[in-house]
Design a protein around this nucleic acid. Sequence first.
DNA 1: ATTATCTATAGATCTATAGATAATGC
DNA 2: ATTATCTATAGATCTATAGATAATGC
Lengths: 208, 208
Amino acid sequence: MGTSSGRRVGRPRAAGRPDSGLQPRDELLTAAAELFTTSGYTATTTRAVAERAGMRQASMYHYVSGKEELLAALLESTVTPSLAYARELLADDTAPAGERLWRLCRADVELLCAGPYNLGGLYLLPEVRTERFAGFHAVRAELKDAYRQLLAATPAGGALVKTELDLRTDLVFGLIEGVILVHRSGPERPVSAFAEATADAALRIAGV
Amino acid sequence: MGTSSGRRVGRPRAAGRPDSGLQPRDELLTAAAELFTTSGYTATTTRAVAERAGMRQASMYHYVSGKEELLAALLESTVTPSLAYARELLADDTAPAGERLWRLCRADVELLCAGPYNLGGLYLLPEVRTERFAGFHAVRAELKDAYRQLLAATPAGGALVKTELDLRTDLVFGLIEGVILVHRSGPERPVSAFAEATADAALRIAGV
DNA sequence: ATTATCTATAGATCTATAGATAATGC
DNA sequence: ATTATCTATAGATCTATAGATAATGC
């Protein structure tokens, strides 16, 4: 029996929304993604999230402990795919490091620009500095370290002392994140071309 | 009679704070800058701002119409100095365009990283997209246009069609803004060296 | 019986205004 | 008299819990 179409256990929902086909928790995440990015995290109320997900405010607590949990899940979802790809690239010795770095940059920009919402900006929220989001920070630090390792493996990068390598890494990482934020202002541009141009720029910065 | 030391008209403040020497409105702006960047804009209450500025919540309304006005003023203060410098550079034909672009990048990074708070991140707030902040957007757009003009005036930039020029401008502007945001994570680095490295990177992106 | 919802609400805010008060200025 | 404050508060939230309810499952 499919979970989406069959009758479900429990009291029916009050507001008869068309069945999205998503699990309730995913409905909440989708709603949160839209509201957090368009209205802001703090300004978004639990009621707004729940209602957009098709349930009443109190019902949300059946699935998540509150807004923070939604934010944590969304943040991790922005970095995890890039990190998985970065790990693949680190393990692959067949391609030169410069080319692998280029691919990582392109993939990172595409993943973050392709989504319907600008989740990339959420990591700047002051709340995110909290211990509560240590998981996200760990994943992001690992991603940044992958950039560093790929950079270090290039001919140009191999010649750098640690301080210099850290600086280059920050510049490349800053470009990627900054470009994602700026991209929103001009979304009429095709993402794939933009991602490639950014990857080119990253390599120029890296000095490869 | 100095405004800072002499007795002042009006009922004395309740909480006896040391006289900061600032005008009350500036005390509010300073308090808001700190709180907006550390606790977040929406999460910061009017009470918190007023109290940190040394007055009671209600007294704030004597100087500003609310939080929005404070945010608008802070945002403009982050772009106005860079824009003033950009105008100077545009008018100066003695130096080559590439060098002027380099100086603008360096100044922009220095101005935003040198301040005690990371005001640069505030422009990403969803609230800022509102009509209320049209003034800030206008100033920021003018600054971005200065980048574009300097880029176009370089030998490499002169050869670009409009689409290409826009792309390069976005990449350079994205680098500058992204780097400012990333910088916070490693503030043990001297700002001036960092600003110069960023300006170098910007020129490499520009293809100059 | 189990489950996913709902309704209702206590307790804790937060903003913006109204009106009182304590200084200086003339 | 003018001014910069203060205290008090109405009205409008918002979060998280308690307890009721309406389905399915056995």
